[in-house]
Simulated assay, not measured.
Amino acid sequence: MKGGLLSRIAPGAPAASFQPLERSGNGWPGGGATSLSAAQVGLWTFMAVVCALFALFAVAYMMRIGYGDWRPPPPVPWQLWLSTILLCGASLGWQVAARLARRGRRAALHWCVVGWLASLAFVASQLGGWVAMAAQGWLPAGTPGAAFFYMLTGLHGVHVLGGMAAAAIVTPRLARPGSTPAWRSLATRLCAQYWHLLLALWLALFALLFTVTPELVRDVCGTLGIPVR
């Protein structure tokens, strides 16, 4: 999700402070139906590319797991469990912010901050999880599984940081007098959708890295008639 996507649809005319969002006859206040649709399509396109990228890495992971030098990961450190809870909180915070913004509630700003801070805590907890995994001998250059672990979780963390950077630009603008109810609703809704994707990707990665085993891959491939090494 890019900040520029939202900046192109930022309203130029001043408006009163937070008011409930109401549709006009042509779709949205100010005749912005086309811009809003373009922003939504742009985000969905970006999320589709992100999902495709992670799906390709997941396929590569499951192909590599069948080799004889594969080693199972150590027990999941508590920091990664905490990361999961924090990202759930961030996703929930943005969802609440989107609903409140649509109703014209100023409390939406507070929930945007909650979502952003929960994301920051997620990144910090993730770094703690890396340290804990390294302390158990799970080093990036140690085994193929460890290399995949740091690459996939690091790539996910980069997308979290990117969303945080965009949100840091968007959130202060929600309180500006010139922001219309339609723009505030759109901005928070796009952030919420992006964080829902981050949460779904994290849960998928967590399951891939800590529950998928070579035996499971062989059983599934054998059922499907796919030869494995």
Rank of each mutant, 00 (worst) to 15 (best):
S35F: 06
F54C: 06
L92R: 10
V76D: 04
L117E: 02
A97V: 05
F57H: 12
A38T: 11
L117V: 13
L109C: 09
R103S: 04
V50I: 09
C51S: 12
G89P: 00
R103V: 00
P29F: 06
G104D: 05
M63I: 12
G115D: 11
A33N: 13
S83R: 11
L86W: 05
N26Y: 11
S91Y: 03
P75R: 04
A101Y: 00
W28E: 14
L86I: 01
Q40S: 11
Q95G: 09
G25P: 01
M63F: 14
G25L: 14
V41R: 14
G68R: 01
V114P: 00
L53I: 09
S119R: 04
L80K: 02
R99S: 10
R64G: 00
M47S: 13
R23A: 14
L100A: 01
L100D: 07
S37K: 11
P74T: 06
Q95V: 00
G32W: 11
R99V: 03
Q40I: 05
Q40G: 12
P73A: 15
C112N: 01
R64I: 03
S119E: 15
A60D: 08
V113L: 15
E22I: 10
R99Y: 05
L86Y: 05
G27H: 03
A118F: 15
A58R: 15
G42I: 01
P75S: 03
G27Q: 07
G68Q: 12
G66T: 15
L80T: 05
A55N: 01
F18C: 12
S119L: 05
H110V: 09
L43A: 06
V59S: 02
G25W: 10
W111Y: 12
A97C: 09
R103F: 01
Y61C: 01
P73L: 14
A108V: 03
W116S: 13
A98E: 05
V114S: 07
S24W: 12
L92V: 07
F57E: 09
Q19G: 00
T45W: 13
Y67R: 07
Q19D: 00
W70T: 00
A55F: 12
I85D: 08
G68S: 15
P74H: 02
T84S: 14
F46E: 11
N26L: 08
A52P: 03
Q19L: 14
S24T: 08
Q40F: 03
A48R: 08
W111K: 01
A97H: 06
R64Y: 06
I85M: 09
S91N: 09
G42P: 02
W78V: 09
A98Q: 01
A39G: 04
L21W: 11
P72N: 02
L56V: 12
S24I: 02
N26K: 14
L21M: 10
A108G: 06
A90I: 06
Y61N: 04
V41W: 04
L92H: 05
W78L: 10
W116M: 14
R106Q: 10
T34Q: 14
R99D: 08
L36I: 14
A97D: 03
W116V: 09
G32S: 15
V76N: 02
